[in-house]
Design a protein around this nucleic acid. Sequence first.
DNA 1: GGGTTGATTAGGTGGGCGCCGAAGTGTCGG
DNA 2: CCGACACTTCGGCGCCCACCTAATCAACCC
Lengths: 243, 243
Amino acid sequence: MSARQDVGVNTSMEGHELAAWAKMLADATRATVCLALLDGRAWTATELAKRAGVSRPTISEHLNLLVDGGLLTEVRQGRHRYVKLAGPDTAELLEDLAALAPRRTEDVTNLSGASKRGAFARARTCYDHFAGRLGVALTDAMTDRGLLDWSSGVALTPAGVNWLDELGVVVEARRGRPAVRSCLDVTERRPHLAGATGAALCTHALRQGWVTRIPGGRALKVTGSMEGFGLPAGVMLDLLSRS
Amino acid sequence: MSARQDVGVNTSMEGHELAAWAKMLADATRATVCLALLDGRAWTATELAKRAGVSRPTISEHLNLLVDGGLLTEVRQGRHRYVKLAGPDTAELLEDLAALAPRRTEDVTNLSGASKRGAFARARTCYDHFAGRLGVALTDAMTDRGLLDWSSGVALTPAGVNWLDELGVVVEARRGRPAVRSCLDVTERRPHLAGATGAALCTHALRQGWVTRIPGGRALKVTGSMEGFGLPAGVMLDLLSRS
DNA sequence: GGGTTGATTAGGTGGGCGCCGAAGTGTCGG
DNA sequence: CCGACACTTCGGCGCCCACCTAATCAACCC
């Protein structure tokens, strides 16, 4: 019994901390803010207030809470307050949550309707890498060409490393961040490529002008043929349509 | 502006779902319950009430909420209600959260005190695999012997597959579950081995009697030399002490 | 300086919910 | 059958907190 008590005290304190952390996301307004910030950019308080549909004072308090909790970081510039996600690990955790959470309550077939046909589902960013049909297609193409190895988890093959090199993609390896990582796509319900390499590919494509951001959201517009990525012609036709 | 509105509506609905999910963990009592269930076993309502320090009616409501939310599953047997975590993916998400959440608020050096010296820090389960110094040491030993490849993410080498085979460890591959996975150790703050292989090794050691559970918690008592695991003598000395 | 805009503070309101004690339902044992 | 036990339902209390309006502060622009 004393052993149980000892462990009990320890774990119950952990419980408080976990709860305090989860409380940051346990509000619809704050959750909306965090998901909006998954585009990886910095937003002003007023922009977020509009997006979440609440008043400015309300969003101000929420942002205080999220910044104090370490989920967001802020930069003050003049009369503007810019906030963004604290870092890649925070973003990846959010992605996991966002992907896993609705799986239980929502019927997957619901997505086969209108949301499957928007620009959002076609191509978008997921914090700092590609998602949507573009993200999944790129991941599939890389797999088909032997650049990725999925035998256990996901890994970059030697051929994959060469390919990135030849493409001129510089992968910045930050401490503790895996080179490649699997991220569950919310619309496709299949994994796409994340991690440092996923981010580097996204940055590369944006810099090359192959894709551009559609203002006001995470959606992307595909403008180039993205030859370097080796996507099948059929996929490209889909991605370029209605743009 | 209309584009923003379109995306806004979509994302704000996602926000509601994410918030609803996070709300399940956003209470100290429920968080404590979930962390307790990380031992991978089924608990009765009364046990959890004691652990969390609340009355039976209170825990009953919390369990309803968690089961309805899909985080837990329940089995009714006679007058008992057993609950456990819904599955490995749920457990792994919880581990990630529990590992990441306190990192921001709590000073790492806090852990160098009493908690470093308990059985909990020495050897324990993390849902279905090893954690604590045992978990990290086993992972290190496997890495040193070329059984794991950490060049990008973590993967099992061919030698690793052979080793498992010779050890007689059967890894059950379930759909969508990676063979190996990295899991951040809460006390050691370093990764240890999880995934299907991690679970199989833990099951194997328990079945062989190399380790036994200390009742009332996740802590383990190391009883055998665990020759098959190839742990250094110094580590074994530490793990066996005070048992 | 005066007007505009972004952000914050203060004050007040309402709803949600975590908690308990008491009473009720079902299950097991003698 | 009749207690003992595990659990649930009910009613009510009290706190927390998300929200708004109004007012204030601060930065930018003419």
